[in-house]
Amino acid sequence: MEKLTIFFNKRTGTIKSYCTGVQSMDFFGDEQEDYSLIFDFILVDYDPFVIQNIDNFQVIDRNLKIKQSAVPEQYL
């Protein structure tokens, strides 16, 4: 099964970047050490909905979650 690598801010859970396939912090090249201080990454199953709506997601406790603000109040 294809994967997505999601890079996120450790403190806020905000998604910084993503790429298809399995990656590591090497994704950031020479800046890897610096980025590792602020960002981390998780692997999730490939999902086109996530890619098309990446701004509506965040990482909470190392899990990809849809932001509550992205769901209309009538569905909460």
Rank of each mutant, 00 (worst) to 15 (best):
M1W: 08
M1D: 12
M1N: 11
E2S: 15
E2F: 08
E2M: 13
K3I: 06
T5S: 07
T5Q: 07
T5G: 07
T5A: 09
I6S: 03
F7P: 02
F7K: 02
F7R: 04
F7D: 00
F8H: 03
F8M: 04
F8I: 03
N9T: 09
N9H: 11
N9W: 00
K10W: 05
K10M: 06
R11D: 11
T12E: 06
G13F: 01
G13N: 03
I15M: 02
I15V: 05
K16F: 08
Y18E: 04
C19H: 10
C19Q: 11
C19R: 13
T20P: 05
Q23M: 08
S24W: 01
M25L: 14
M25Q: 04
D26A: 10
F27T: 01
F27Y: 09
F27E: 03
F28I: 01
F28W: 12
G29A: 05
G29E: 08
D30N: 13
D30V: 11
D30R: 07
E31C: 07
Q32K: 12
Q32I: 05
E33N: 11
D34H: 12
S36A: 12
I38P: 00
F39V: 00
F39N: 01
F41Q: 04
F41L: 10
F41R: 06
F41D: 01
I42H: 07
L43I: 14
L43M: 12
L43V: 13
V44I: 14
D45Q: 12
D45M: 14
Y46I: 11
Y46W: 14
D47S: 15
D47F: 10
P48Y: 07
P48C: 09
P48K: 12
P48E: 13
F49K: 10
V50E: 06
V50Q: 03
V50R: 05
V50T: 04
I51L: 15
I51W: 06
I51N: 09
I51Q: 10
I51G: 07
Q52V: 03
Q52N: 14
N53H: 13
I54S: 01
I54T: 04
D55R: 14
N56A: 09
N56E: 07
N56W: 02
N56V: 02
N56C: 09
F57K: 00
Q58D: 08
Q58K: 11
Q58N: 11
V59Q: 03
V59L: 06
I60Y: 10
D61R: 15
D61Q: 15
R62K: 15
R62P: 06
N63F: 10
N63S: 15
L64N: 02
K65W: 03
K65D: 08
K65P: 01
I66C: 08
I66P: 02
I66H: 04
K67G: 02
Q68E: 14
Q68Y: 11
S69E: 14
S69H: 12
S69D: 14
V71Q: 08
V71R: 07
V71G: 06
V71A: 07
P72H: 10
E73I: 15
E73A: 15
E73N: 14
Q74T: 13
Q74C: 14
Y75E: 10
Y75N: 13
